[in-house]
Design a binder for these strands. Structure first.
Lengths: 238, 238
DNA sequence: ACAAAAGTGTTACTCCTACACCCATGA
DNA sequence: TCATGGGTGTAGGAGTAACACTTTTGT
């Protein structure tokens, strides 16, 4: 190796030699899960690309040069849903060469959880709608793969960390919580064992309140302990 | 919403409107773990950027417009180590705005596992060297964070899936395997319990051979069952 | 009174942990 | 013969799964 090759480059010089490579675009796609009517749903938009006419796609956008990955995901969420106090978690990058017909676009997938009923979105315009996750067969781009990957990640995390509470209203009964777990995991759970498991985790506070709109014996209401709430770290910093 | 706004765009038209965004570069960084002398090591290179003079960095490179993420990682591995029959797994994207002094570079981190002794690298030139993982304090860019994240992922996967065998020679004794687990997890393990746990997983084949270069009673040699071997999916396809 | 779900404990089983002795080999 | 690790089993504890009856409320 020669003296010349060993000489340190400055970042400026390196940048010039890299200019050829600045022609891959990079986007964020958000798998926004919601829960309503005992079903896990995902927020989809009608694709506006001719190539995918009739198909739906995830919410996504290109990342701007001056925003980091999290900022971009929160921006997309905010633009499309008006929400910014939301749980978001990165899952994986997807970068097959031909995944996007416009050119080379690498995307980074995030999943997000929101309580459908408490965050009424303006769904009527911009072709945005909730779709039950297990009715979805085909999406634009590789978005079905992204959805499946994010759902799998959600399923893995659900018993480990208190994330699902983002899908529920502030107060909820143990029955509602169990139905949510069943919807996410796609299995039936034993009521007594489920309650034991949850109570061991020590995530909940008994609110000394009862359900009052149910046509049967009302259950106690609980909420997530404040210490386990995870919101948007960007707004939390303010 | 007007008729015009509703009209579908073609991908071609969309591409034009996105041109502004094609100025983020995207790279792959590989955390290449190796195992030798009872220590978990990682392959690092002296940074060639003035800004990081004296620091080491992971092996990485910009992704070319015509290669997908996996291809890029395997290319980097191949260029730097001459190896292409290797386990590689995507961990996460890192995209803070100022993580790279040359400009905006989003990177996708992969980890890789290779058997140091069986794959003698040309370490002498190009400033490439193995470093014990737990002696590393500071790296160029955000590479320490990337390393820590990848190590955590490796630790999570190690008991779930048979990945660690990529760090060992074809034949190995249970002692060697246990020492490897201890190095990765950073804890001591009970010999009897470890052997039970491994035997339940049914990953290994008894080779009816003994160690022969040890200064004590030799142990049996095992190898990973063929059905659990995971190699480079790109070369495997050929 | 009936329907619907709330609330609650025990038993059996599985899994995990902690722990100690004799054996085979090389020096 | 000594040093080194190989090889093995068991008992106690923790956690998990299966399972049924009584209670409360609304209709």
């Amino acid at each position: 190796m020669t003296e010349k090759e060993l000489r340190l480059k400055t970042a400026e010089i390196e940048k010039i030699s890299h200019l050829d490579y600045f022609n891959i675009a990079i986007s964020v796609d958000c798998v926004i899960f919601g829960y309503d009517e005992k079903e896990l749903k995902v927020l989809l938009i009608k694709s506006d690309l001719e190539e995918f006419a009739g198909l739906h796609s995830l919410l996504g956008d290109l990342i701007r040069p001056d925003e980091d990955l999290e900022t971009a995901s929160y921006r997309i969420l905010k633009e499309r849903t008006e929400l910014d106090d939301v749980y978001l978690e990165q899952v994986q990058a997807f970068g097959s060469i031909n995944r996007h017909p416009s050119g080379r676009v690498i995307t980074i997938a995030y999943y997000s959880l929101i309580d459908i009923k408490n965050h009424k979105l303006q769904l009527n315009h911009n072709q945005l709608n909730w779709h039950p996750v297990n009715t979805i067969r085909k999406l634009a781009f590789d978005h079905k793969l992204i959805l499946d990957t994010c759902l799998k990640r959600l399923q893995e995390q659900v018993m480990e960390t208190p994330v699902v509470f983002n899908l529920l209203p502030e107060k909820f009964s143990l029955r509602e919580l169990q139905e949510l777990y069943e919807a996410i995991l796609g299995v039936e759970l034993d009521r007594r064992n489920f309650r034991k498991k949850i109570s061991i985790k020590d995530w909940l506070v008994d609110m000394d309140e009862m359900e009052n709109d149910v046509p049967h014996r009302p259950g106690k209401l609980y909420r997530l302990k404040a210490e386990h709430k995870r919101n948007n770290p960007l707004t939390a910093r303010i």
